[in-house]
Simulated scan of single mutants.
Amino acid sequence: MVSPDKNQSTPVMLILLGFSEYPELQVPLFLLFLTIYAVTVVGNVGMVVVIKINLKLHTPMYFFLKHLSFVDFCYSTIITPKLLENLVVEDRSISINACITQFSIAAIFLMTEMVMLAVMAYDRFLAICYPFLYTVSMSPQCCVLLVTVAYTWGIISSIVLSYSILVLSFCESKIIDNFVCEYNVFLSASCSDKHVSEITLFILVNLNVFCTFIIILTSYLFIFVTIIKMHSGGGRYKAFSTCSSHLMAVAIFYGTIIFLYCIPNSKNSSLIVKVGSVFYTVVIPMLNPFIYSLRNNDLKETFRKIIDLKTISQ
C-alpha cells in the first residue's frame, strides 16, 4: 500500500485549478457560491429543525427527509469551503492525504444520498399502494433500520473506494483541472497501474446507481398504476402531490450524474464537467429544501409560524 513515492522527501501535492482560467470571474463566482452555500446551510438546517420541533411532522416521510437534509448539509460543507478558498487564494495546492480525506468523507454522503432517495421512494410506494399496512410496515424501528442501512452502505462504499486509492502510487505533484477531489483526480495523478482501481470504481458506482435507480423506478411504476386506478380525483391529486417533490429531486440528481458521464470528449468538455460537478455538489443540496417545501403545506405552515414568531419577538 503506497501513497507518495517512498523515495521522495517532499510530500506530493495536487494543484486544483478550479475556475482559475477565468480570473475576471473569481470574485463574482466567490460571491455566488458563498450565497448558495449560505442558503444551503439555512435551508437544510432549517428543514431539520422544523421537522424536529413540529410533532405533526413526526412521520416516516419527514423522518427520511430530515436525514436527506442532514446529508445534503454535510456533503455541501465538505465540498464548498475548499471551492471558495480556491477562488480567493493563489496557492491552490492540496496534499494527497488531505485530498483523499475530502473525497472519503464526501463519498460517504454521496452514496448515502443515493440510498436515501431509494428509501424515500419505497416509503411512498408503501404509503400509496398499501395505506392500511403502512403504519405497521413503516414502524419507527423499521425507519431507523433503513436509515442505518443507508449510512452504513455509504461508509462501506467510501472505505472500498478510499482503499482503492491508497494502493496507488503518487510520484510527483500534478496540476488537476478540477475544483474538487473526485476519484478521477487520483487516477490522473497516479504513476502506478490503475487497472484495479478503475474496475473497483466502475463496479461500485454502477452497482449503487443501478440498484437505487431500479428501486426508485419500480416503486414509482407501482405508484403510477395505483394512482391510475383511483376513482377519486382528489385522491389522485393528493397521491401525486406527495410524490412530486421526491420525483423532481430524483430527476435533477440522477439527470445531472447521467449528463456528466455521458458527454462526449471534446475541447470544451472540461468546462462542462466542472459546471456539471458544481451543480450536483453545490447547487442540488441548496435546491432540495425548496423542492420539498414548494408543494408541502405542512412545511410551509411551520416555516410561516417560525417567521411570524420572530417578527413578533422583534
Rank of each mutant, 00 (worst) to 15 (best):
F170W: 06
C211A: 14
A189T: 04
T77M: 09
N206E: 05
T101A: 15
W153K: 05
V48H: 02
T218R: 06
L84W: 01
E198Y: 10
S157W: 09
Y220R: 04
I223T: 01
A38H: 05
L260T: 01
P4Q: 14
E172G: 10
T77G: 13
M120S: 04
P140N: 04
V180M: 11
V2S: 15
D91N: 08
L117F: 05
I155N: 09
S9I: 08
V167F: 08
D123E: 15
G233W: 15
K305L: 12
F240G: 08
L204M: 10
K300T: 12
L87W: 03
I291G: 06
A150L: 07
R236M: 11
I284G: 02
V278A: 12
F109L: 07
R124K: 06
I284W: 05
F240D: 07
A150E: 04
K310T: 10
S20A: 12
L25I: 15
F279P: 00
C243A: 01
I272V: 07
H58E: 11
I156Q: 09
M1Y: 06
T256Y: 10
V250E: 01
A249E: 02
N296M: 01
M116V: 08
P11M: 10
N265K: 14
T112E: 11
Y134T: 12
F170Q: 00
I312Q: 12
L271P: 01
L16C: 01
I284N: 04
M114G: 06
